[in-house]
Amino acid sequence: MQATATAPIIAFHHVNKIYANGTVGLKDIDFQIPRGQFLVVVGLSGAGKSTLLRTINRMHEISSGEIRIDDAPIGAYKGKALRQLRCHIGMIFQNFNLVNRASVERNVLSGLVGYYPTWKCILGLFSAADKQRAVQALKRVSLTPKIFTRADELSGGQQQRVAIARTLMQDPKIILADEPVASLDPRTTKDVMDTLQRLNREDGITVIVNLHSVALARQYADRIIGLRAGELVYDQPIDNVTTADLDRIYQTN
């Protein structure tokens, strides 16, 4: 028991990713993420932040090396097993990725795809208990009043919170957020980041966020890692991070 608590939830072992067109996405990435950490990934555009995040739930395949989650190598998962893996990893996107014309409730319930047989998902036959959970999830992102509204009638920040509620339905161990606040204004940015922080502190969910804003990174992170051209060039707990360090990550060449 003690051992699992201290064992990393995610471990990268010499991971390389080369895209089909020859672009190097990740280069010899080797690091570990402890359970319950709030990790922020920074780096220039094209540095490989999205690539890194997407290898964790196998939305992107790696070319060599190994990624372990809870000490199990994820590379061999196929079909059902792969979907089970994704089921426990929430993902949040820059563009929210909701079904615009569906109600907020329906969008939130769609987070349950991994838990229900396909035909029930298709017919929308979710149990009363799960509908209640959807209400609870919306309550946590303070959006219960909007439950029956159409998703495209919400503001950007509200839509992002709906997306968070959707991942909450997955009951995730890990949340991956790829620039979740890039298209939001400062106020809604705070709403969204605070929500992520609460999930991290209260539920112990491991949160990995790609950010472009150094200020936000310093405000929310337990630890910051920096990527440049697919390489891990920086890795420090928040107490050791200095502004000069971060400036160096953002230097060109």
């Binding site: 209640q132 209400v135 609870q136 309550k139 219960t144 009043p145 909007k146 439950i147 029956f148």
Partner: peptide, 9 residues
Amino acid sequence: STLDLPKRP
């Protein structure tokens, strides 16, 4: 939480 819910048209 159920009381919080808006009335569904």
